[in-house]
Nucleic acid binder design. Structure first.
Length: 299
DNA sequence: GGCCAGGTGGCCA
DNA sequence: TGGCCACATGGC
């Protein structure tokens, strides 16, 4: 099979190792990591590509693409590069964030520990919503178990070099499933309804990443999303942070964030919401990165 | 056994 | 608006 190789130059403040470690900690059947690379299948307009990502000696990102569907064109090449730039959030300028964070009581420790980390995103908005809804209220390890069951029950299995990879289930398929079919994996009935509802909205193109990007006002985006059953302020901000990439997305109610602030600030208790508003006022415009680095402390 | 997990909607004053 | 409560399940 033909393999195409592309290079992407990396920002100064990007550490491949730190980002690989992060991905390793979140491996979920959709991609795989080893000591030096990340691999996954991606689908573009129904065409299948297998990509391998690693770093070269002169600090460039190397992307090898196997043309599984025999459909590789310059257009797909461009889309694959955009996908990688987006997944690793390569186009954001983080110097202003680091300048703020270096002198911030709560951020200086996480940015020193994880310098070079990026908000590795969830490019597929349906996946982002499902992951957020699954994670509501329950502990993260159980949420991971549910996600694993979700992917392996409804997703598509592919094999590459004898190893399993999965494609995330399509919103169209999930929208068509019965409550019982969804309930069997162990999530609450309400989560089944929420997920089926969002699947329907995405399948009908009533909700899309592009539309949310175009709103460009986080208050509007949150308002629109929280009108949907099962999407509260936390889920809305989570999706805007991990997928749509609003830099000021801020899931202020997040328990993990609270624990991370307690740890980073050596507090004897978790801060209150009002205290967090005070703390975060210094991060204006970079709340999403502040949150992502703080999460890394506790997950 | 009880309480908390990367919350949310529904009900009631 | 603000205060409960149920929700599925796992870990401590």
């Amino acid at each position: 099979m033909t393999v195409y190789k592309q290079l992407l130059s990396l920002p100064e403040n990007f550490s491949f190792r730190i980002n690989l470690d992060y991905l390793k900690s979140t491996e979920d059947g959709l991609f795989r990591t080893d000591q030096e690379s990340i691999t996954r299948f991606i689908v573009l307009d129904g065409n299948l590509f297998f990509i391998k990502i690693y770093v070269s000696n002169n600090n460039r990102l190397v992307i090898e693409t196997e043309d599984v569907s025999q459909s590789y064109t310059k257009q797909f090449e461009r889309q694959i590069m955009l996908y990688i730039r987006d997944w690793f959030d390569l186009d954001i300028h983080l110097e202003p964030f680091y300048t703020i964070a270096k002198q911030d009581e709560y951020l200086k420790m996480p940015i020193s520990k994880f310098y070079g980390l990026r908000n590795i995103g969830i490019p597929d908005i349906f996946e982002a919503f499902v992951w957020a809804i699954l994670g509501q209220q329950i502990n993260l390890s159980f949420a991971s178990t549910l996600k694993d069951r979700f992917i392996k029950n409804y997703g598509k299995r592919l094999i590459h070099n004898g190893e399993d990879y999965w494609l995330f289930p399509s919103p169209r398929l999930i929208a068509s499933l019965s409550m019982d079919e969804l309930f069997k994996i162990g999530m609450s009935r309400r989560k089944c309804e929420y997920i089926r509802g969002i699947a329907r909205l995405i399948a009908n193109n009533q909700i899309s990443r592009e539309k949310l990007v175009q709103l460009s006002d986080i208050n509007l985006a949150v308002k629109q999303l929280t009108a949907i059953k099962g999407i509260g302020p936390w889920t809305a901000n989570y999706v805007l942070l991990r997928c749509v990439r609003y830099p000021n997305a801020f899931p202020i109610n997040d328990v993990g964030l609270h624990n991370a602030l307690k740890l980073a600030g050596s507090l004897d208790r978790k801060p209150s919401i009002d205290e967090i508003k005070q703390i975060a006022s210094a991060w204006e415009g970079y709340e999403s990165y502040a949150t992502f680095f703080l999460w890394r402390l506790v997950y």
